[in-house]
Amino acid sequence: MKKKILMTGNEAVAQGAIDAGCTFYAGYPITPQNELTAYMAVHMPGKPGIFIQAESELAAINMVYGASAAGARAMTSSSSPGISLKQEGISYIAGAELPAVIVNVMRAGPGLGNITPAQSDYFQATRGGGHGDYHLIVLAPASVQEAYDQMFLSFDLADKYRAPVMVLGDGMLGQMMEPLQLSAVSFQPSAENKKPWALTGCAGRSPNVIKSFYMDTNELEKFNLNLQKKYALIRQKEQRWEEIFLKDAKTIIVAYGSMARIARSAVHALRGKGKKVGLIRPITLWPFPEKAFTKHLTSNTRYLAVEMSYGQMLEDVQLAVGKAKVDFLGRAGGGVPSEEDIIRRVNG
């Protein structure tokens, strides 16, 4: 077993990606994720790792497109304004059905905003973000350890479904240091990771083409229907969440990422006072873990959506619970709902 080390979330994501077999990274500097890029610059180069500081976010995501087309496990990272710039490339990656991992260490917006943590890119991440009918698989780590572990999962899911996966963190998680248990095993390519569609030169086979253009309308519609089938399968198979104290809960708090850690503290404090409170922490934001709600749905359960944004995840909670009552507590632009805010809201 490898020893425990102390790392920031940003560094853990980078080390996790390397251990998960990522051999190509391209990025452009932006706070609060610069430690990730810098870590990659130190640890990626050499066989077989490739690091490129791109001239722009557009170039970085298109380099990821190219590296993935050539068969590499490829990723980029950025923070909110940079992720907006990458949307064109992400749409092309989804359209060309290429596996890729995109890390968004969210900061407060809109516009330039500032570098304080926020969760305001929830809609952009979970609804697609760019043009066209597509989804990203979106994972939301809540600790440095989970950020590391999710890099393995994100590359595996990307390969499995030939789809872009976003790891959605925030500045708080990116900057915080926690003990981390590194994986004893690193990624070894197996038969499951074979990519017969990749561009390798057409020796011994007919040519491969990576594309998202369909001149014929029927063909494009057929392609879209196939994409929707893939998304339906992902919805069915890949919902992930953590639940605490749900069995007898009268109030269920819903929160993800850094916000879920504060919510968890509030839940423990409230339980200490005998309050029947539970927590659902979505680990996949898309697909949203609806199953967690249908499993526990009772007519008199009250829900409280807590987020560092103004009612974005709230909409998914409302869709998941139907007619049940959903309260909302949210701050953004650098404001973070505190443990006391949550306790007051549950009691009030």
Binding site: N62, E88, C202, P207, N208, V209
Partner: peptide, 12 residues
């Protein structure tokens, strides 16, 4: 063309 190819987004 009868060899491996990829599209690229406009300008990329």
């Amino acid at each position: 063309w009868n060899f491996d190819c990829s599209e690229a987004a406009h300008g990329r």
